[in-house]
Structure formats: structure tokens, C-alpha cells
Design a binder for these strands. Structure first.
Length: 600
DNA sequence: AGCACGCCGACT
DNA sequence: GTCGGCGTGCTC
């Protein structure tokens, strides 16, 4: 017998081994096998008849029995194909680490896929969505798997579910041994409730199970590293294959998910609109930007502090676009309509999507105003201004991305008791629903202008999340040079559908997701090959290929490709040719399908 | 990914 | 004269 084994390595073919007599192995089981001298763990993806004296033998099983049922392995294959990630790496990332060499242990058999129940996925929107999800799990009483965007949320949900029975935690917030034990307890039916992050996507589930993806719009559901695929997309596929019930929750769903609901493939379950704070737009057009707080925002802070209420001030990282001080217009790519990326150092404007360089204009293309400037209020500058203005208030800055570890802890402690918290997106987690007196946004235009077609979606999500944390008698103040933008308008009117109507229109007109799929293809090492590849992609009917960009030395060639639902299949074919026999010095080709953000 | 092989700069 | 840089290539 010969076993084909996939390893966690950037090679997309399996390695074959002789199965020693007496060793009983099956697909879905992990094994130790020699690879270039060293013993490594790999996933058996096939076992076949045959003999080849040249093959090395498998060493020993790493799992007493398959961790993946046939359906799980098929799903892993689909993930690997869809994301162009190696199958071995996909399995490694989506399974708990194999048990340590110790005693053999029992052999829980993993159940196969269940009969399809055929119900459509549901999208839980609006206030109380998490409570409704919990009630639904309680009502159905079946097995449930909660996929959270991060470890903290997984832990929180483990506590919520503990009321209903034993909960298996499958995320990296618990020790590896506990993860592995939980996985097996779930497989043999001893435990029916589980929480985890994306690494729990393949967790075994009993009949009548339900999977939930929390905050499905979160980019954290597609973390770096293989397999580069969004947890929501895997769950949609799993629901379709295995017939498990699927629930997605979101305050502001991804545009892709809203569109699926629009077209009836997902059933949206909105809540009745709850109370909403007053949202006010403060127009900053033509205002000298020496001071980050407009009079309305400063007044609102004073009032909130006087009333003993807490204030959140949302700031963003430094800007990378060029805007007009007079009319607020941002310099955009004529073709792609996304903001041109501004580099102060190089004094250049360039489109991150099509790579078209724009000349640095002297005057605003919209109003011919002469004051064009890079826009930015960093956390420090805002903090400084607020301290000067409100010397008596307890003011704290909170940006966990900038301060990690012990410093982050200290920052969090200070922010927890501060009257005014100045922070980025992540700071919102400090506040419960309807607890703030005021949420103010100093310059959300910075987010709105990010050179990314998702800029509107992300800005809307942030503002909405903040508004949900403001008391109904509180206020949201948004400073903007673009006060009539549909993002702000939908926020003010608490009108979710209005935002998606506009956004879908924009996406449809320019052929962005969900109407077309995107991929970023990079070739490292050989510029000529990279350009040859870009040319080859351009020949494929149905694909739109943006001009390739190269870094300074031409070591990295990047090309953005647009295509239809079968984009991964096209890319796999092109990659196979690219790596095909007979060609030398090809460099390394790397593909990111459905990128969530640009980051060059 | 790891790990070895391989051909060019500064050191005991 | 060697030690070591990481570019290139292979792993059943």
C-alpha cells in the first residue's frame, strides 16, 4: 500500500510513502513521515494499492484515528483549491496540533457528513443579535459551533454557552492539549457545544448541528497565513455541503453578505430598530486645520463631561491621500475611482489598484482651490489638543495596535477609567452597548479616502459600531469635509439598506466584489517572469488584468486580476503553466484571492 | 517551510 | 588561507 501525504510546506503536491505491513492508516489521519531526513507530520490524503521499493516507509501514526472524516478532507481540498493554498498547510492551520507521542490512547471514530437539512443560512442583524443567536442555539438544542473573529470573543462565547452544557474551546486561547482533547470530545459526541476561531472551521459536528459566524464582516476572519480564505466563505460552503444550519451575525454585514441576502441566498433576520443617538455632521470644509476639534465637537465634549458621561474620540492613522482644504474633494484615480495614494517622501500620487501614476496637481481638480494637502490627525496630536482644551478631564489614549504587551495593559487600564478615550477602532471594545455619552470622529474622511474599494464599507462599520455604543440620549458627532456622503447619511438615519444600496451601485458600476472577484498575484525573484505571467493572464478571456507594478529593484512584480466566480480555477491553471516543466528560474508565485485589504 | 549546497567578502 | 552571507533548489 502507498499513502499520499500532504505536508505543511509551500509545495502543492503530496509525497508518497510505503505503508509498512501491520500499520493501519486512512485518509484524514495524520502521520509522522521522513521528509528530507527529518520526521515531520503530514496529512494522509489518499491510500492506494501498489508497491515501490524506492519509497520510504511511513514512521508512525500521529493520530490514533482520522481527525477528519471524508467530508472534512473534501472540504479542506475545496479550501485549498479556492485559496490556492497548499492542502497540507490548510490542514495544519485548521486542525489542533497532533497529540504528543505519549501512549496510543483510544480511537474515537469520526462521524461522516450528515444528511442535508437544506435550510438557508440566516443573517442576524441589529440589536440583540447575539442574544437571539444564543436563544436559537438553546431552542434547537443541537450541537453548535461558534466561529469568532478573535480569541477574546471565542472565550466570551464559551462563557455564554456554559449555561447550556459543556463547551469545547478550539481556539489558541487554551493549551494545545486542551484543544486536541476538546476536538475529540466533540468528535465522539461527548460535548456538543464548541467555540473557536477560524482554526476550528473543520471541527466535527453531530447531526442537526448549527454553525455560527460572529461579526462576519470582520477582516480578522481572514488572518494572514494559509489558507487565505475568509471563515464565512468556508462556513457557507460547509453549510451547502453538509447541510448544517448556518447563522451569520453582524451589525453591518459585509457588502458580499448583504448582496447574498438581497438575492435570497441568505435569509436576513433584522431586529426592530432600537433607539438611536442623534448624529450630527460638522462640516470641516475650508476650516484651517490647526485644531482637531470643531466648535460643535468641543461643545459636545464639554456637555458630556459636565453630565458625567464618557466620551470616545475616534481617530485614524496617518493619511495617505491628498485632499482639497476648500471643498473636501480627494484626488482620485480617473479609472478606478479610489483615492490615489500620496507619498510625502516621494511626492508622488499613484493608484494602488491600476498603478497609474497621477501627476501632483497644483489645484483641486474639482473646485480649482489652491490648498491641497495630505490629511491627518494622529492620536498624539488629538490627545494634545484635548488636554489643552479640557485640562480637568481624565484623558487616555488607546491604540493596542501601537502599544503591545505590558504597555498595552497599562494603556488599557488607564482607558478603562478615563472620561475621554482617544483611540482607533480597537478602542471601541472598551465600551458596552449604549454606554457612551458621546462618540466623536475627528476625521473619518481619512478612512473614507483610503485607496481601497472597501473604504466606504469599513468606515460605515466603524461609525455604526460606535453609534451602537452611545446612549439613546447621547450624541455622535462626525467631522467631515464630505458631510453629504452616503455613509454619513445612512448612519444619521439609522438606515442600513440605504448604505448598501449606494455601495452596491458603486461596486456594480466599477466591477468590484461581490460582482467580480479580485486576486493579487505576486511573483518574487524574477521580474521578467512576473511580466510574462501578467501578459499570460491578460490573454485569458474573462479576466481583467491591471498593469503590473514592480518594486524599486524589480524583485517583486504585483498584478491585480479581476474575474468571475471561477477566478481561482483560472489562476490555478496559469500557475500550473508557470511552474510547468521545461522552464527554469521562475521565481515564486504567490496568490491572494479575495483580498480584504490592499496594503502594498 | 526547513535544510543543504554553493560561490564571494572580512577575520582568527 | 577559513568562516559565513543568504540566493537557489529539493524534499516521497
Amino acid at each position: 500500500m502507498i499513502a499520499d501525504v500532504a505536508f505543511d510546506a509551500p509545495v502543492d503536491h503530496p509525497f508518497s510513502y510505503r505503508v509498512p505491513g501491520g500499520l493501519c492508516v486512512a485518509p484524514g489521519q495524520r502521520v509522522w513521515a521522513p521528509l528530507r531526513g527529518a520526521a515531520r507530520v503530514g496529512m494522509i490524503i489518499a491510500v492506494r494499492d501498489g508497491a515501490d521499493a524506492a519509497l520510504k516507509p511511513l514512521a508512525r501514526p500521529a493520530d490514533p484515528a482520522p481527525v477528519l472524516p471524508p467530508g472534512g478532507l473534501e472540504l479542506a481540498r475545496w479550501i485549498s483549491a479556492e485559496s490556492l493554498s497548499p492542502l497540507g498547510s490548510t490542514c495544519a492551520a485548521l486542525l489542533p496540533p497532533p497529540p504528543v507521542p505519549a501512549g496510543a490512547g483510544g480511537s474515537p471514530s469520526v462521524r461522516g457528513p450528515r444528511a442535508a437539512s437544506g435550510s438557508k443560512p440566516v443573517l442576524l442583524l441589529g440589536g440583540g443579535r447575539e442574544r437571539r443567536l444564543l436563544e436559537q442555539i438553546e431552542r434547537t438544542g443541537g450541537p453548535a459551533l461558534i466561529i469568532a473573529p478573535d480569541v477574546e470573543a471565542a472565550a466570551r462565547w464559551a462563557r455564554h454557552l456554559a449555561r447550556l452544557g459543556r463547551v469545547a474551546r478550539l481556539d489558541s486561547g487554551v493549551p494545545d492539549v486542551e484543544r486536541a482533547t476538546s476536538w475529540r470530545a466533540l468528535a465522539d459526541g461527548a460535548v456538543r457545544l464548541a467555540t473557536g476561531t477560524r482554526s476550528a472551521l473543520l471541527a466535527p459536528l453531530g447531526a442537526g448541528a448549527m454553525v455560527a459566524v460572529l461579526d462576519e464582516q470582520e477582516a480578522a476572519h481572514k488572518p494572514p497565513g494559509p489558507p487565505r480564505i475568509h471563515a464565512r466563505d468556508v462556513c457557507l460552503e460547509r453549510a451547502a455541503r453538509e447541510g448544517v444550519a448556518l447563522a451569520l451575525t453582524a451589525a453591518t454585514p459585509s457588502v458580499e453578505t448583504w448582496w447574498r441576502a438581497d438575492s435570497g441566498r441568505i435569509v436576513a433576520e433584522p431586529a426592530q430598530a432600537g433607539p438611536w443617538p442623534t448624529v450630527t455632521l460638522a462640516d470641516t470644509r475650508g476650516i484651517l486645520r490647526r485644531e482637531p476639534l470643531t466648535p460643535p465637537l468641543a461643545r459636545a465634549i464639554r456637555e458630556a463631561l459636565a453630565a458625567g458621561r464618557r466620551v470616545f474620540l475616534g481617530v485614524s492613522r496617518l493619511a495617505s491621500s491628498l485632499a482639497c482644504d476648500e471643498c473636501g474633494d480627494v484626488v482620485r484615480c480617473a479609472e478606478c475611482r479610489i483615492a490615489l495614494a500620496f507619498s510625502r517622501a516621494a511626492a508622488t500620487l499613484v493608484c494602488r489598484l491600476c498603478a497609474r501614476p497621477g501627476p501632483l496637481p497644483d489645484t483641486c481638480p474639482a473646485c480649482h482651490g489652491r490648498r491641497l494637502s495630505p490629511f491627518g490627525w494622529g492620536t498624539e496630536r488629538v490627545e494634545h489638543a484635548v488636554r489643552r482644551r479640557f485640562p480637568g478631564a481624565r484623558i487616555a489614549r488607546y491604540d493596542p495596535d501601537a502599544a503591545r504587551g505590558a504597555r498595552g495593559e497599562a494603556q488599557r487600564a488607564a482607558a478603562a477609567v478615563a472620561d475621554v478615550v482617544i483611540g482607533t477602532r480597537a478602542a471601541l471594545r472598551l465600551f458596552g452597548p449604549a454606554t457612551l455619552g458621546l462618540a466623536g470622529f475627528v476625521a473619518p474622511d481619512q478612512l473614507l479616502r483610503l485607496p481601497d474599494f472597501r473604504a466606504g464599507e469599513r468606515t460605515f462599520a466603524l461609525l455604526w459600531a460606535a453609534a451602537e455604543r452611545v446612549r439613546p440620549d447621547g450624541a455622535v458627532i462626525v467631522q467631515s469635509q464630505n458631510p453629504t456622503h452616503y455613509v454619513f447619511d445612512a448612519l444619521t438615519r439609522q438606515d442600513l439598506p440605504a448604505f448598501y444600496r449606494h455601495e452596491l451601485k458603486f461596486r456594480a458600476e466599477l466591477g468590484y466584489p461581490p460582482f467580480r472577484r479580485l486576486a493579487v498575484v505576486s511573483v518574487r525573484g524574477a521580474a521578467a517572469e512576473g511580466h510574462r505571467l501578467a501578459a499570460a493572464l491578460g490573454e485569458v478571456p474573462g479576466l481583467t488584468v491591471y498593469p503590473a507594478t514592480a518594486d524599486r529593484r524589480g524583485r517583486l512584480v504585483r498584478v491585480v486580476v479581476k474575474g468571475g466566480p471561477d477566478l481561482p480555477e483560472f489562476l490555478r491553471r496559469v500557475r500550473a503553466d508557470f511552474r510547468g516543466p521545461g522552464s527554469r528560474r521562475l521565481g515564486i508565485m504567490d496568490v491572494e484571492v479575495d483580498p480584504v485589504e490592499w496594503r502594498s
